[in-house]
Amino acid sequence: MVDGMPIIRPDSPPPTWPVLLAEQHGVVSHHQLRAHGFTVARIAAEIRARRWQQVLPRVYATFTGALPPEALVVAARLYGGPSALLSHRTAAERWGLLPPGPTLPIEITVPYGRSAVSQLPFVLLHRSRAHRHLVAATDPPMTSRADTAIDVAVAEPDARAARQLLTAILGTGRVSPNDVRRRLLERPPLRYRNALDEAVRMVSGGVQSVLEERYAVDVEQAHGLPAGRRQQPVVVDGRALYEDVVYDGAGARLTVRLDGRSHLQADVALKDRRRGNAAELAGRASLVFGWREVSTTPCVVAAEVTTVLLRSRANLARNTCSRCSGEVVSA
């Protein structure tokens, strides 16, 4: 058993009945029941007597009442068959790529051509022609970290949401941008390819959160600002801290700090104050923006950054985007 999950080995000799029930949280398939001597009539009798219940086609719980989460996962995997992989959001949560959410539906991936209903009360089944290339060496079997990250991003409703989700996943550090880049080449997604490539490129360049992605796209790129350098080290109180964006490479001694939710924590707030003081003592301009400003008024943010950059770069053009006319922009 791994991470509380039972190990289902269809190619191994069947375990004894008590062991099977214990490993699979009381959930069994029709095939397993027949292998243990249960006739079709006996199975039907157990269900009629309400000692058992059918939870999915050819999958049964040997008890009544609601199924606990572990039993639901076993049922989904038994329904999908020996090749079923936990995938998409279900796999993403188990890999730690996404925070825990609603338990259902349980998402699994099976080989293309597998005959099964794609969506049942608590199972969402996906089919993949590349199934054998997705398998990670885990127990229970899941899609690989990189494939899982791509799958959940592609499931988003639009390209921008896909890019932001992949940016957030890569920002966890639990999956390598290089691994995702390689899988995008080996297994090109049917949609959002450019958006996912852009997410990998930005994270490789130092973007670490959705807030930083919004700043890079809606502030810098949309307004033609020079791309700042991300995650640049600065020594403060004898310790190496990191600035979100600096524009020294563009000829301006300007630091931009992006305050996300983590900056509300006391230790992070202290580091922010010390970095701010260090920048002031070093004669650097410093601007601080939070989620609200960057997400709702990026044009105002861009105007403020432009104003500071112009102090050092007289030839910097003032660029506008399609949203600028709708915001009060000062310079």
Rank of each mutant, 00 (worst) to 15 (best):
C321P: 01
Q265K: 05
E213C: 02
R174V: 03
I43C: 05
G326A: 14
E198R: 11
P140R: 11
S295Q: 00
V175S: 05
V154A: 13
C324Q: 04
H263F: 02
V300H: 13
L254Q: 04
G249R: 13
R201I: 04
E213F: 05
L104A: 13
D158M: 09
A195P: 02
A266L: 02
R160T: 11
R181E: 12
P57E: 06
I8M: 13
T143Y: 13
P188W: 01
S322H: 12
A130K: 15
P68V: 05
T172P: 04
L241H: 10
R58I: 00
V123Q: 04
A155L: 12
R273E: 08
Q265W: 04
L98H: 01
P105S: 10
A285W: 03
R193Q: 07
G96K: 11
Y192P: 02
W291D: 03
A266N: 01
L264D: 13
Y60A: 02
Q231Y: 09
D259H: 14
A331K: 10
K271M: 09
A285H: 05
I7Q: 09
H126V: 11
A161S: 15
L281S: 00
T39R: 10
R94D: 11
P6M: 09
V19T: 15
V27P: 09
E304F: 02
P111Q: 07
G249N: 10
R292D: 08
R132D: 15
A266Q: 06
I108K: 06
P18T: 08
R214V: 01
A116N: 09
L165S: 10
V328I: 01
V154K: 10
L254E: 02
L85G: 08
A153S: 15
P233N: 14
V175H: 05
P68Q: 06
V40L: 06
R182K: 03
L86I: 04
P177C: 14
G249D: 14
V207D: 01
P226R: 10
R313D: 04
S325F: 08
V74W: 03
F289I: 01
T90W: 04
L316W: 00
E93N: 01
A91G: 11
E70H: 07
V236Y: 07
E23P: 00
A216I: 00
S128W: 14
A35D: 00
V246R: 08
G173S: 12
P105V: 07
R50Q: 14
H88G: 05
D3A: 14
D267Y: 07
G80Y: 04
H88F: 01
G276E: 08
D139Y: 07
G4C: 12
R323Q: 09
A303W: 02
P10Y: 08
A45W: 06
C324T: 08
A252E: 10
L72P: 02
L170K: 05
L225M: 06
G26Y: 09
R229L: 14
P68A: 04
D11S: 14
G101M: 03
S204L: 06
L85Q: 07
Q232R: 13
V152C: 15
L67M: 13
R42G: 03
D139W: 12
A250R: 03
R274L: 11
L241T: 03
Q119D: 10
A35C: 00
T62E: 02
N315T: 07
G81F: 08
L184M: 05
G81D: 07
D147K: 09
A331H: 12
I106V: 15
G283M: 03
G96D: 02
T307R: 00
R132T: 15
Q54K: 11
A137K: 15
T307W: 00
V2Q: 13
G173F: 08
P233Y: 09
A240R: 15
